[in-house]
Amino acid sequence: MDQRAPIPFNRHLTFWALACLGCAADLWSKHYMFSQPDLLAHDIRWMWEGHAGFQLSLNEGALFGMGQGNVWVFASCATAAAVAIPVWLFVFGAARDRGLTIALGCILGGVIGNLYDRLGLPGLQWANWDSARSGTVHAVRDFVLIARRWPPQGQFDVWPNFNVADSLLVCGAIALFLISWRRPDRPPTPESAVAS
């Protein structure tokens, strides 16, 4: 890839639009779900009985709840990623690749959505969730519940609750994996980079 070719304007538009829309969808959906009285009362709102619905939870860890209690480590990593991704794309020129730009736009939207929660910006208080704790909640707000009963009359297996930001992060990571397997037939020219 010719590193001297200018980065097309549509790459900036694509990246920032995906990041902003993804983050907005995440924050709006969290705000909406965490304002529902039945969910705040710890009820489950089933969309498909026994399989998919909504249930509120707070995650002080990372993906699948790993690393519970290390909220500031994850917040620091998210801050570094929020700076590094645009720099890599637009300063070092990785944005010449459309697929990479799309995947990283989704990832940045998810990173910022969850970072907002880790910084305690929603203003939730622990006293409303756990009577043994006090202070501001610095945890990711999750609400999507996926469960299955196995065997059919047995106990539920529940997937860890997640949110829109988590979905963006996972889809972006899968896209990056698939992009890494891509083998172009020939190196792109500056003209093809601008056209795509």
Rank of each mutant, 00 (worst) to 15 (best):
Q3E: 15
A5F: 02
P6R: 14
P8Q: 02
N10L: 07
R11K: 05
R11E: 00
T14A: 10
F15Q: 03
W16M: 02
A17C: 10
A17P: 07
L18D: 06
L18M: 10
G22E: 02
A25W: 00
D26V: 06
H31V: 09
Y32N: 14
F34M: 07
S35T: 15
Q36E: 10
L39G: 09
L39V: 08
A41Q: 13
H42D: 12
I44M: 06
W46P: 06
G50P: 10
H51C: 07
A52Y: 08
F54R: 11
S57H: 09
L58S: 03
G61V: 10
G61L: 05
G61H: 09
A62E: 08
V71C: 08
W72G: 12
W72H: 15
V73L: 15
V73C: 11
V73K: 14
V73N: 12
S76C: 13
C77M: 15
A78I: 08
T79K: 02
T79Q: 04
A80K: 09
A81Q: 06
A82M: 00
V83T: 13
A84Q: 04
V87Y: 04
L89M: 02
V91C: 12
F92L: 14
A94W: 06
A94G: 09
R96N: 03
R96V: 01
D97E: 07
D97P: 00
D97G: 02
G99N: 08
G99H: 03
L100T: 14
L100G: 09
L100N: 08
A103R: 00
L104T: 12
L108H: 02
L108F: 00
G109N: 02
V111A: 01
G113N: 03
Y116S: 15
D117Q: 09
L121E: 04
G123F: 00
L124K: 06
Q125L: 05
W126D: 07
W126Q: 08
D130F: 03
A132G: 15
A132K: 15
S134R: 05
T136I: 12
H138S: 05
R141W: 01
R141L: 00
D142A: 06
D142W: 02
D142R: 12
A147N: 05
R148M: 12
R149C: 13
P152D: 15
P152Y: 05
G154D: 04
G154I: 09
Q155L: 14
Q155F: 04
Q155E: 15
N161M: 06
A165G: 12
A165S: 09
S167K: 11
V170F: 01
V170Q: 04
C171Y: 03
C171G: 13
A173P: 05
I174K: 07
I174M: 10
A175Q: 05
A175K: 06
L176G: 04
F177R: 12
F177D: 09
F177I: 15
L178N: 07
L178K: 11
L178S: 06
I179P: 06
S180R: 08
S180A: 13
W181I: 10
W181A: 13
R183I: 13
P188N: 11
P188R: 11
P188D: 07
T189Q: 12
T189C: 10
P190R: 10
E191Q: 14
E191R: 07
S192M: 13
